[in-house]
Amino acid sequence: MVVTLDVDGAQASHFAVGTSPLAELMACLHTLAEPEHHPESRAWLARTREALPEPLVQELNRFAPLWARYRCRLFLPMRKPLDLELSAELDGLARLDADEFTRLAAFAIRGLTFPGADQLRDADVRRAFVKASERRSFSRGELARALVEDPDGFREHLADTLERCAAAFFDAEWRRIGPRLKDTAAPVREQLRKESALTVLTSVSPTATVTERPARVHYDKLQSATGKVAERGCFLVPTLHGWPHLILKTGDDGLPLVVHFIAGDWEQRPSARQSLIRDRLAAISEPGRFEMCRHLLGEPITTSELAQRTGISEPQVSRHLRRLREVGLITSRREGRMIYHRLHAQLLLSLGSDVLTTVMR
């Protein structure tokens, strides 16, 4: 499955690149709510949890459906300009049209967009929304009920919780990482002036692929969606705490598309595509190839020696080696008349983390 950005007719003016402290705060709250997604953040999680008073922890648990799985569109930029301070973004959240606020919050609580979210003033629609949320979990049901019974009170309570997060840990964190995110955004903004939208949108993710006609960029995700940049515009917002999740928002009518892309060193730890990971798992799951991998790990070995050790014919060994080579799990080098094969141990070692990262993104 893929999320596709249609860039036919898109110009540089259709894009905005910049930072969003509110979006980064959401990424932090996601990490707190789903720590198993972020093993690389253990030290940060430990420090931050120490700074959180217990009443605030309880409030974050209550509002967790807004950022745990489905990232609420309320916390991503909805209009220009970008690079605002958190206080300005929270002020914009407070002034947002009441029906739009309720609709976007409802999407996050349900965990998906759904028909009728713009009709939550209707009693029957409200009851159906609460019941559907309850089927997901008791906590979602309670949050859904709070939203429809008192939308203004819900918004005030949420804003107060976010302000308390800022005071407890995020203001200090933003002072540390905000300049780095601005340094990430600047070259992307410059790139948009000089290169095609296809090139820029591909450059922000190692999983992106391109079709030229029609001009589209496809991102390897666990859902399918499409958004047209020329019709709605597109915001490119870097994140550090969001790793490894590339967040794409395309389904919120009337709002710009958003690419919440990963800043930092993903170039040094590139993500493999789902298809390649499946191929690698399939390649080593075959018993004969799995047994061969044990011999290929210890030392470079020839086809004939491998056949002798495993009791498999040389033509069969050659076929197995070819398959392992196709998915990048072995390397082969020639020395005179002999070809030696060896398992790519680092790739095999990283396969587990690749699987986890792919499932999470």
Rank of each mutant, 00 (worst) to 15 (best):
R180G: 09
F170Q: 05
C165E: 04
L192P: 01
D171R: 12
E173Y: 00
K194Q: 15
P179V: 07
P179F: 06
Q191P: 01
T161Y: 00
D171S: 14
L181R: 03
E173F: 00
A185M: 06
K182D: 11
D152M: 05
E156Y: 03
D160E: 15
F154V: 04
T199W: 08
L181Q: 04
L198C: 05
L198W: 02
R189Q: 14
R180Y: 08
P179E: 05
V148T: 06
P151L: 03
L201S: 08
W174D: 01
R155F: 05
A167C: 06
L201I: 07
A159G: 09
P187E: 10
D171H: 12
H157V: 09
R175W: 07
E156W: 05
A172N: 14
S196H: 10
E163M: 10
Q191G: 05
V200M: 10
A166L: 12
R175Y: 06
P179Q: 04
A146G: 12
A146N: 08
D152I: 03
K194T: 14
L201K: 08
P187Q: 14
Q191L: 13
A166P: 01
V148P: 01
R175A: 13
R164N: 05
L162F: 04
L181D: 02
F170E: 02
D160I: 10
I177C: 13
E163N: 09
D150K: 06
F169M: 03
R189G: 14
E190R: 14
A168R: 05
L147D: 03
E163H: 10
K182E: 15
E190Q: 13
W174F: 05
G178A: 04
R193N: 15
A166Y: 07
G153K: 03
R176S: 11
C165M: 07
W174V: 02
S196Y: 07
A186R: 15
L192A: 03
K182F: 07
A172S: 15
R180T: 09
E173P: 01
R175S: 11
D152Q: 09
S196Q: 09
G153V: 02
I177P: 04
W174G: 02
G178S: 06
Q191C: 09
T161R: 00
H157E: 12
L147I: 09
K194H: 14
T184D: 10
T184S: 13
A168T: 05
S196D: 10
E156A: 14
D183C: 11
C165T: 05
P179T: 04
A166Q: 15
A172Y: 12
E149K: 14
